[in-house]
Simulated assay, not measured.
Amino acid sequence: MSCKLTPRGAAAAARNLSIRTRLPHTLALQRIARSSKAPAQRTPFLITRRGLSDDINSRPPPPGDNSDLPPPPPQEPSEPSEVAAPGEYVPRPPEIFAQNFLNEEAIAALQKASEGYNVYDEEAEGLLFDKPEKVGKNEQLQNRYHPVVDQVTKLLMKDGKLSKAQRHMTLILNYLRTNPAPKVSPLRPLLPGSPPPSQLPLNPLLYLTLAIESVAPIIRIASIKGAAGGGHALEVPEPLAARPRRRTAIMWIIDAVLKKRGTGSGRAQFATRFAQEIVAVVEGRSGVWQKREAVHKLGTASRANLTHRAVTGAKMGRSAK
């Protein structure tokens, strides 16, 4: 056997390759016979005469037979147009737009912008909720939050972690929104003028505010040291403003939440227990109501101390209970 590296071996390899790639004699005759029997022109399967003949507006008619096509519409005689002199400006005729609401809005916006007004109207209707009020020039940025939400968030904050307290506040409001409507007890009613319980989940902010304001005490018990004689303190009731009232109620609720036993794990457990305590306050099942009743009962019993000489005369040092 000859080697392929020699000239003789290379010639033998080229001869074998040409023999292998050459078609047999019988196959060549069969292909010639098929090509003679095939039609001269074939029409593609997807292109039909009907699809081309219907499209007369966007496709020009063929140059051959036009018997199947309808005659073109007659053209109206056009008015003789004046031929402009070379170099003379000829204004372009105005373009006629279709009558739809998009063109009308665009034309109205252009006219509004040409008159110097703002194109984007801030008071336009169509919003699902009202837009928040902008902070005034002399107002502080932190006052944009609701006072109750801001106060509860600051009291929930621990070790200066405000973002964590805000996350708890978000979970609390979301729980109140998704929880079923509460059942208010007639023995411990809410504030007069409050909406029906079925509407409270629709406004979780009102839900939270109503629970805190309903359980907040209206007085506090101040102690005047040594005024009762024998080293005993004299207890005197004092009225409270709105913010101290809410603070007392929130601290009572937080104490009740911390005393509760956790039912699971996760960073949302505290927020869930706090929201459950808010629901218990609205339904009258929370122990915070007993603290409020105890403070009011003690204030009613100590009303006689308001006429004491330590109160009406020179006031001594006090310590709130």
Results as ranks from 00 to 15, higher is better:
residue 61 P to M: 05
residue 136 G to P: 00
residue 304 A to W: 03
residue 303 R to A: 06
residue 270 F to G: 06
residue 238 E to P: 01
residue 219 I to G: 06
residue 89 Y to T: 07
residue 27 L to W: 09
residue 203 N to G: 00
residue 300 T to N: 13
residue 11 A to L: 13
residue 207 Y to E: 01
residue 176 L to S: 02
residue 100 N to G: 07
residue 53 S to L: 13
residue 247 R to I: 12
residue 235 E to W: 07
residue 126 G to T: 05
residue 278 I to S: 03
residue 37 K to Y: 05
residue 19 I to W: 08
residue 179 N to T: 14
residue 204 P to M: 04
residue 197 P to S: 10
residue 232 H to L: 15
residue 282 V to P: 00
residue 198 S to P: 00
residue 319 S to G: 03
residue 212 I to G: 02
residue 61 P to Y: 04
residue 294 A to E: 10
residue 57 N to F: 14
residue 83 V to D: 05
residue 179 N to L: 04
residue 123 E to G: 11
residue 88 E to T: 14
residue 36 S to Q: 15
residue 80 P to H: 10
residue 293 E to A: 14
residue 120 Y to A: 09
residue 134 K to M: 10
residue 257 V to H: 02
residue 143 N to V: 09
residue 208 L to H: 03
residue 253 I to D: 00
residue 6 T to P: 01
residue 30 Q to Y: 07
residue 106 A to K: 14
residue 246 R to M: 12
residue 214 S to I: 02
residue 103 N to M: 09
residue 183 K to N: 08
residue 104 E to H: 08
residue 60 P to R: 13
residue 33 A to T: 04
residue 297 K to L: 10
residue 317 G to T: 14
residue 165 A to H: 03
residue 171 L to K: 12
residue 65 D to Q: 02
residue 30 Q to G: 05
residue 254 I to P: 00
residue 269 Q to N: 06
residue 318 R to T: 14
residue 163 S to G: 11
residue 125 E to V: 09
residue 144 R to L: 06
residue 278 I to P: 02
